[in-house]
């Protein structure tokens, strides 16, 4: 906890330094960056809207990281499940609440099945889930973009976008005046469920043991191959739902022509949350907050929003640095020892 706060503080200091170097009115710009996200109902809404997909991917990545699996496939699954949900939203004829439910569940199931493949390859033959999942990202993006361009694309629209979703498929808004949608409830339910699964069930226990030491878990009678496949299925399901919900909650056409980046963002959220489900909420909100702050800053001052990328890199590098504070502590100890001698 202390280290996470220290890292966030350092990251904010770096942000202020960059702003003061770049901006002609640094103080004004910093104020926009810090306080604009909570300045109005619409902006608070923006933060919450952005936190929803971040919570989904952060939760999926937390599960995988907890099992000591470095699978970064949430990126491709977000995209592809989005395409699946979009095609159901365009073509199916279903009732008001059934339509989005079917689309989201279909996206989740497709995500689970796709995610299972690197899982099976890892569990059975120990193929690096990192490399296979990265390959899957590119493959899923290629196939998804093909489907968008050749099957779903609205020729009458000027940009590369799909046909309009049917109004029945779009998720309901929770708070008038914002775009906060029912996906928020779904993700919070998921977080509670994953917490319960991880800490209160036998499977969750097996998952955590496998993550700590796969060989030890295997010798103590846990079927680790099964655990690895199960984790991938659940994480894929969560990421798939996340992609579908983002598409149906925020847009009325499918319009991603590049990978949306949520897979890697999820890694950042999971790290901030130390892979704990409830802490994912905090990690996602923090990231969403500084992003909206940066967006507003780009709009109202002379500093571009891409500054946030530098801050994110600093956070990841420092937060995963096990020795970060120890390093300085050791140096201080050595120095004092030298003084005494």
């Amino acid at each position: 906890m202390f280290r996470t706060s220290a890292v966030i503080l350092i990251a904010l200091i770096v942000a202020f330094l960059i702003i003061s170097l770049v901006s002609s009115q640094p103080w004004h710009t910093i104020q926009i960056f810090m306080f604009e996200p909570v300045s109005s109902k619409a902006h608070i809404g923006n933060v919450i809207e952005m936190a929803i997909p971040l919570m989904f991917s952060g939760l999926a990545l937390s599960l995988l990281f907890k099992a000591n699996l470095f699978n970064l496939g949430a990126e491709g699954i977000f995209y592809f499940s989005g395409v699946v949900a979009a095609s159901i939203a365009i073509h199916a004829q279903l009732g008001n609440w059934l339509h989005p439910a079917v689309a989201v569940l279909a996206g989740g199931l497709v995500g689970a099945l796709l995610s299972a493949i690197p899982g099976i390859l890892k569990a059975k033959w120990n193929a690096s889930e990192l490399v296979t999942s990265l390959m899957f990202n590119s493959i899923l993006f290629g196939v998804g973009l093909y489907l968008l361009n050749y099957k779903l694309r609205d020729a009458k629209a000027f940009a590369t976008v799909s046909y309009k979703f049917q109004p029945t498929a779009i998720l309901d808004k929770l708070v008038p005046g914002t775009r906060i949608h029912t996906g928020l409830i779904v993700v919070l339910v998921c977080i509670v469920a994953v917490h319960f699964f991880l800490y209160k069930t036998k499977w969750g226990y097996e998952l955590r043991m496998t993550g700590i030491n796969r060989n030890f878990a295997e010798y103590s009678g846990i079927k680790t191959a099964k655990v690895i496949i199960l984790v991938h299925l659940i994480a894929g399901f969560i990421a798939g739902m996340g992609g579908s919900i983002e598409v149906l909650g925020m847009y009325n056409r499918f319009q991603w022509t590049a990978l949306p980046g949520y897979g890697f963002d999820g890694a950042l959220v999971a790290m901030l949350a130390k892979n704990k489900p409830f802490a994912v909420i905090g990690g996602a909100f923090f990231l969403a907050y500084i992003r909206i702050g940066a967006d507003q800053m780009a709009r109202m001052s002379d500093v571009p929003s891409e500054m946030i990328a530098i801050i994110q890199a600093v956070i990841i590098l420092l937060i995963s640095a096990e020795q970060f504070l120890k390093f300085f502590k050791n140096r201080m100890l050595l120095r004092e020892a030298a003084k005494d001698a």
Binding site: F264, L268, M271, A313, I316, S320, A321, Q323
Partner: peptide
């Protein structure tokens, strides 16, 4: 600092 190499790589890419 013993940052995990994969997470470090992600940071560089971001």
């Amino acid at each position: 600092f013993k940052t995990h190499i994969i997470l470090g790589g992600i940071a560089i890419n971001l």
